[in-house]
Amino acid sequence: MLLQDFYSVIQSKKEEGKVITHIRINKNHELYKGHFPDRPVTPGVVLMHMFREEMERQTGRKLRFSKASNVKFMAVVDPNIDDVLIMEYETEENEEVITLKAITKNNGSIALKINAFYN
């Protein structure tokens, strides 16, 4: 994990061809002291990185981000308002590439939509 102690998995399950993972963000993490002290916001790149970590956990493979398309940040993730995120994703994989189609939800809204490729 790149961000040690940033989040923990509450539960993860496969349902109707996709993985649904509930995570809890550590709202006291060092990251929020700089981003931003009076109003913490989870950086979009961190949300993207969490998908890679979760796919590595699910597949048992070490992955490297290759490219992304259709990346949309749609809501602010403030850990003081809602520290639980729901990550939903579908993957297709072959020997060389894993294709990800995913969303992150918090507080009833979609915070991130992404299509990404890892190898």
Rank of each mutant, 00 (worst) to 15 (best):
N115D: 12
N115V: 15
A116S: 14
F6E: 11
S109Q: 10
S69Q: 15
P79R: 01
T91G: 11
N115L: 15
D83A: 12
M48N: 12
H22W: 09
N94S: 11
E93P: 00
V9H: 05
Q11G: 13
P43C: 10
R24T: 00
E56W: 02
S12A: 05
L100C: 12
I103F: 09
F117M: 08
L3A: 06
L63I: 13
E92Y: 06
V84F: 01
F36N: 03
I114W: 14
Y7P: 03
V97P: 02
F6D: 07
N115F: 15
N107A: 11
A75F: 05
H22C: 07
F65L: 07
L112N: 08
Y118L: 12
K101H: 14
N119D: 07
L31G: 03
S12W: 03
I23Q: 01
E56I: 11
E96K: 14
K33D: 13
V45E: 10
N94H: 00
R57K: 14
D82F: 04
D5P: 10
E56V: 13
E54W: 08
M50I: 15
T59I: 01
K27L: 02
G34E: 03
F36W: 04
G17N: 02
E16M: 07
K105F: 07
Q58W: 09
V19H: 08
P37I: 01
Q58P: 01
V41A: 11
I10T: 10
D5C: 10
L112C: 09
E54Y: 15
V71W: 06
G108E: 00
V41C: 05
F117R: 14
V46G: 03
D78E: 11
F51D: 03
V71T: 13
I98V: 14
M87G: 04
I110A: 08
I110H: 09
Y118W: 08
D78K: 02
S109G: 07
R64Y: 07
P43Q: 13
N94E: 05
T59K: 00
I81R: 03
G17L: 04
T59D: 07
G34M: 03
P43V: 15
P40D: 00
I81G: 00
K13T: 10
F73E: 09
K14E: 12
K101V: 12
T42P: 02
D38Y: 02
Y32H: 09
I110V: 15
M1L: 15
K67E: 13
N107R: 08
E30P: 02
I25C: 06
T104W: 06
L47V: 03
Y32R: 03
N26M: 14
V9G: 06
E15Q: 13
N106C: 10
K101S: 13
V19F: 10
N28W: 01
I81Q: 00
N106L: 07
A75H: 09
M87R: 01
R61V: 06
G44P: 04
A116Q: 11
A111S: 15
N28K: 12
K14L: 13
T59Y: 04
K67M: 09
V84Q: 10
N26L: 06
F36H: 07
K72E: 08
K62N: 12
V41F: 03
N115M: 12
Y7A: 01
E54H: 15
H49D: 04
L2Y: 13
P43W: 08
F51I: 11
A111E: 13
I110Q: 07
K67Y: 09
I25G: 01
G17Q: 05
S109P: 02
T91H: 05
E15T: 04
P40L: 02
I10G: 06
P79E: 02
M1K: 01
